[in-house]
Every structure is written in C-alpha cells, then in structure tokens.
Amino acid sequence: MATIRLLGRKTSGNVQKILWMMSEMNLAFSREDYGGPFASLDAPAFVALNSNRLVPVLVHGDEVVWESNSILRYLANVHGPTPLYPEEPYIRSLCERWMDWQLSSLNPCMSPLFIAMVRTAAADRDPVMLERLTAQARDLFARLDEALAATDYLAGSSLTLADISTGMFAYRWFEMALDRGTPTPHLRRWLELLKQRAAFREYVMIGLS
C-alpha cells in the first residue's frame, strides 16, 4: 500500500479535518509542516504539488490530492468502504450536501472571523466587519442547530464526513469570545458527541492559534 503524506500545519482547520478522518479510519500517515511559520507555500517543490499555494495537500504514492473535502472523499473511496462515507445514495447525498454547505456558506464566514479574532491583535480588528461576520455565523449555526434537532449527527445516526467537515468550525465557534446570541442546544449536544471521540480531542481540541 502506498504511503500517505499530509502536508500542512496542525493548526490549520482544513488540515485538522484530514487528521481527524485518518485517525478514525486507523490509517498510517506522516505529516509535514507547511504554511504559517513553517515551510513556505511558495517553495517550488510545494507549488509543483498545488499551484494554489494552500494546505492541505495529500501525497499518496504517485497521486497528489488537494482541497480538504476532496481529500476526505478520496481517502474514503480508496480505503473504504467506510461508514464515514455512506454507500446508500440518499444518505450519501445528505453527507455531500453538508460538505458542500461547509465550503459555500460556513467557510467564507468563519475563516475571516477566526483570523480576526485569533490571529489579529485586538487593536487592529475592524469592529464593523466583526459584527457583520458574527451575525452571519449566528445565522449559520442556528441552521445547523435546527438540522440537528431531529438527528444525532448531520447525516443520520452515526458520524460521517458531514460532521468531520463542519465539526472543527463548531469547536472554534464556541471557543472564541463572541456573542453567540440565542442558545443552540442541539448544536451543543452534537459538539459534545464529537468531543467524546479520541481523534477529535487529539486533532481538533488543541486550542486556537
């Protein structure tokens, strides 16, 4: 079996998704620090793997995969079948739609909010932007809360890639010092389920930086 190399720093949320999934599947892998204070994303060797200059990048033998949710799907297909990526078409569609929602709706809001709150000095923050992003995040997490009212996990009764792609954002949402507005009990209950998983604790619950 070809070796798995994951390129990306462990503080990257998109890298955390992959680490969490690989741990859940008991896959052997190595990780190399890229981005931030580590190896440059502009290094020619890295650009040759991903011209977008973003982490994570998965190198699996001769295959190179980038975009975090594509990596999740790739690993599930190569090393599956796995309950993380259900085979039944409708359940898989539930899983896929939340993964797509994370990319199209949650990420554009939460990524700049995280950068502003965690990686920007308080004196340099834009209060108008913060209020706008926080309001957007409250609305998005309220939708998640509503969806979780009738089910344990986003795509049914067990953990799937839907939860892995979004769970990191929920952890960050509750860790940041923000006005989260109306209580979201179903979202909190779901997050507590995720926190019971050893892989989530090891790779996601590492603080904010």
Score class of each variant (00 low, 15 high):
123 A>N: 02
130 L>V: 11
84 L>G: 06
110 M>L: 13
145 D>I: 12
45 A>K: 09
24 E>G: 06
90 Y>N: 04
76 A>Y: 08
94 L>I: 00
20 W>N: 10
99 M>Q: 05
141 F>W: 11
147 A>E: 14
111 S>T: 14
68 S>W: 06
13 G>R: 11
57 V>T: 02
91 I>S: 14
51 S>Y: 12
58 L>I: 03
5 R>M: 04
61 G>M: 07
206 I>F: 03
169 F>Q: 12
140 L>Y: 11
168 M>G: 10
70 S>A: 15
130 L>D: 09
28 A>G: 15
68 S>M: 10
106 L>S: 07
169 F>W: 11
103 L>G: 13
46 F>E: 11
73 R>S: 12
15 V>C: 13
108 P>C: 11
139 D>A: 15
174 F>V: 12
98 W>Q: 10
141 F>S: 13
58 L>G: 01
65 V>A: 08
18 I>L: 05
31 R>V: 04
43 A>P: 04
130 L>T: 08
189 R>S: 13
115 I>D: 13
161 L>V: 03
193 L>Y: 04
172 R>V: 02
53 R>I: 07
161 L>F: 09
201 R>G: 13
88 E>W: 02
37 P>I: 07
24 E>W: 03
180 R>G: 06
12 S>N: 09
2 A>N: 15
5 R>A: 07
38 F>Q: 06
43 A>L: 02
65 V>Q: 01
106 L>N: 09
115 I>H: 11
188 R>P: 01
149 A>V: 07
140 L>N: 08
101 W>R: 06
202 E>H: 02
29 F>N: 10
85 Y>H: 05
83 P>T: 03
154 L>H: 08
139 D>P: 07
54 L>R: 15
95 C>K: 06
49 L>S: 12
36 G>E: 07
124 D>L: 09
6 L>Y: 01
30 S>G: 12
171 Y>L: 06
156 G>F: 01
48 A>S: 06
9 R>M: 10
145 D>T: 14
2 A>C: 15
151 T>V: 13
160 T>F: 15
201 R>F: 03
153 Y>T: 11
195 K>C: 15
